[in-house]
């Protein structure tokens, strides 16, 4: 089962904080992060990649973005 972080409606740095906290917990992944702004999408992807995770982004239209993070 993957962990889902719903960061929709939250502005940065919250989505990044929530993502990094989940990574810090030692989750084996994958982690799914839901965000609804392009800035949040970029920040989450950039931060996760900085922690050596890879990110796949799915554009969910009006629902925002679904980012799937997997440990490298």
């Amino acid at each position: 089962m993957s962990n889902i972080i719903d960061a929709r409606g939250l502005s940065c740095p919250q989505p990044v904080l929530m993502t990094l906290n989940e990574i810090k917990k030692g989750a084996a992944g994958p982690i799914v992060v839901l965000v609804d702004s392009d800035a949040s999408r970029e920040n989450v992807v950039r931060s996760a990649e900085g922690k050596n995770w890879s990110a796949g982004v799915e554009d969910a239209g009006a629902e925002g973005f679904r980012i799937t993070l997997t440990r490298n």
């Binding site: 940065c12 740095p13 990044v16 904080l17 990094l20 800035a39 950039r46 931060s47 900085g50």
Partner: peptide
């Protein structure tokens, strides 16, 4: 580009990110 001077300091302090 999302240029932000506060965010610059915040991300540096909080996440050690230089972006």
């Amino acid at each position: 580009s999302r240029f932000c001077t506060m965010g610059a300091l915040r991300d540096l302090i909080l996440f050690r990110q230089m972006h």
